[in-house]
Design a protein around this nucleic acid. Structure first.
Length: 498
RNA sequence: GCGUCGUUAGCUCAACUGGUAGAGCAGCGGACUCUUAAUCCGUUGGUUGGGGGUUCGAUUCCCUCACGACGCACCA
């Protein structure tokens, strides 16, 4: 781990050639690594907008100064060269002519694709109609010593794309665009909530007891306190403590960690938006999530985009609303007793050939049945409402049907995108449900969470009626960007070390 | 954890039932002052993911390990 991995002989040759040019640059007094700052007049996108109307052969009168990474160089003899320059905002062609550059033209021979340069000159339009910068001066700002992937096929090896994401970002522009879009989506969500009076808080990621969901936590340790610690698996319980404390509209957008399987929809750490609002309920959360998601879809231009299965993404209010039991009857032919009764559920699973582990809990069986029969049907945004209480230990019961809770999950493109409920604020009911989980845990169920008894104490001080919601931001970004894998919306997805 | 497929030059890919490991791009040298996958001529570059086995001979067949992709399992 402490040794730099070796490069192959062929690659070493390529690096040597580039180092030779670095030496030559230094010898000519243009050491790129000696430069500190470079004053840009703006970015490439601004230059494109400002010169939109420029006609063929026409030169702009005002010079600009740009900086970025060099794309392919096209040398035309000893006196002319074209290249592409890319910055975060876009790409622009450079035209470098001995007559324009004077002594600086000698530097062109010492450039490689991938170098970082600063250029100054005036925009013009070539006779083929491409906006181009006539370069008057050129400053190397960093030498790229390693060869980049080729210009046609780019970098497609998935392993290398994730391990060396920086190369992926340089070469595969759509990857950069997706990451920038992710940033815009998250900041738009934050702005949306801030504008409506929600207060953003930060709760601990290091917990003595990770609760609020059922998932195995990552384990770590404090040297100072000499105690074991767990990384949080949800922000739920701490955010509700904030509600108890008198914060009426709180949210947190943060990383949570679950020590579970990794697949197309799951990364061990991911970003969750959790929000709690006093004096509202699951209906309020439905309104909020619908409005927020439609808003974010508009920002990202997601509506109308074609998905991989050929369907067209639509984000129009109102989203469909189907009660859990009705959905199970409609698509699975299952009645209430096939679900809410332990034995009935197991029989139903056998009948529908849904595999469940021998020791699976009743809740687990019902969840499997739902996954097998309903989830595959939910392509357009759909709220599944009124969940069984056995699936929802932190949600308030429906007053007219205590076996169900005031909860919804929002499904989009066959994927769970949000989970919300009227928060259980009756400490005695909460204690009873925690106790049931503790009993399961004692019976050997390692999945059952260990109760957070202090949370009961918090409820005993009194928590107002509250609506809460959790939205997996990574999955939402996947849906809005049309990405099929969560790894493609994460800059640095977890990879095994080599 | 299980299964399938994959790993060949810096990158993208070839190499038939086992018979001297090739190409394009990149690089290097040369020609070219509006090219844009620039073009043209020439040319360097390999521990075929690691280890072991079978064989006269292994990129190819077998075993094993590593990593990855996909699926399954796990993830109330």
């Amino acid at each position: 781990m402490t040794e730099e991995p070796p490069v192959g002989a062929a690659e070493a040759e390529l690096i040597k050639a580039r180092r030779g040019k670095l030496d030559a640059l230094r010898a000519s007094g243009a050491d790129p690594f000696a430069r500190t700052a470079f004053a840009r007049s703006g970015d490439i996108a601004q230059v494109r907008v400002a010169n939109r109307a420029l006609g063929e052969g026409e030169h702009a009168s005002t010079p600009v100064a740009l900086a970025g990474r060099l794309g392919p160089l096209r040398r035309m003899g000893k006196k002319t060269a074209f290249a592409d320059l890319a910055d975060q905002s876009g790409r622009l062609q450079l035209y470098m002519r001995a007559d324009d550059l004077g002594a600086d033209f000698a530097l062109v021979d010492l450039l490689d694709r991938g170098d970082i340069v600063g250029v100054q000159g005036e925009p013009f339009r070539t006779k083929t109609g491409e906006l181009t910068l006539a370069v008057r001066s050129l400053v190397p700002l960093a030498k790229s010593l390693r060869p980049l992937p080729e210009k046609w096929h780019g970098l497609s090896d998935t392993e290398m794309r994730y391990r060396r994401r920086y190369v992926d970002l340089i070469i595969n522009r759509p990857v950069l665009e997706t990451m920038l879009l992710r940033s815009r989506i998250v900041s738009a969500a934050r702005r949306y909530l801030d504008d409506r009076g929600y207060v953003e808080v930060e709760t601990p990621t290091l917990m003595t007891l990770a609760g609020g969901a059922s998932a195995r936590p990552f384990l770590t340790r404090s040297n100072a306190l000499d105690i074991p610690l767990q990384l949080r698996i949800a922000t739920e319980l701490n955010l509700k403590r904030c509600i108890v404390g008198g914060m009426e509209k709180v949210y947190e957008i943060g990383r949570i960690f679950r020590n579970e399987g990794i697949d197309r929809k799951r990364n061990p750490e991911f970003t969750m938006l959790e929000l709690y609002e006093a004096y509202t309920d699951v209906e309020g959360m439905m309104d909020l999530s619908e409005d927020l998601i439609v808003h974010l879809a508009a920002i990202s231009g997601a509506s109308g985009r074609h998905r991989s299965d050929g369907s067209v993404a639509t984000f129009e209010r109102p989203f469909a609303r189907i009660p859990f039991l009705q959905a199970m009857r409609q698509w699975g032919g299952l009645e209430r007793a096939d679900l809410l009764d332990d034995g009935g559920a197991r029989a139903a699973a056998r009948r529908l050939r849904v595999d469940v582990e021998p020791g699976a809990s009743h809740a687990h069986v019902v969840d499997k049945l739902f996954e097998a029969t309903v989830e595959p049907r939910l392509s357009a945004p759909t709220f599944i409402v009124d969940y069984p209480v056995i699936l929802s230990p932190l949600a308030k019961r429906k007053s007219d049907d205590p076996e169900l809770v005031e909860r919804f999950e929002l499904f989009i493109d066959r994927m769970e995108a949000a989970n919300a409920f009227s928060e259980l604020n009756d400490p005695d009911d909460q204690r009873a449900r925690f106790a049931a989980q503790a009993a399961q845990r004692r019976a050997g169920d390692v999945e059952a969470p260990e109760p957070d008894w202090d949370f009961i104490a918090a409820l005993e001080y009194g928590m107002p009626p509250t609506g809460g919601i959790g939205i997996g931001m990574d999955r939402l970004v996947m849906l809005l960007c049309g990405e099929q894998s969560i790894r493609d919306v994460l800059l640095f997805p977890l990879q095994k070390p080599l």
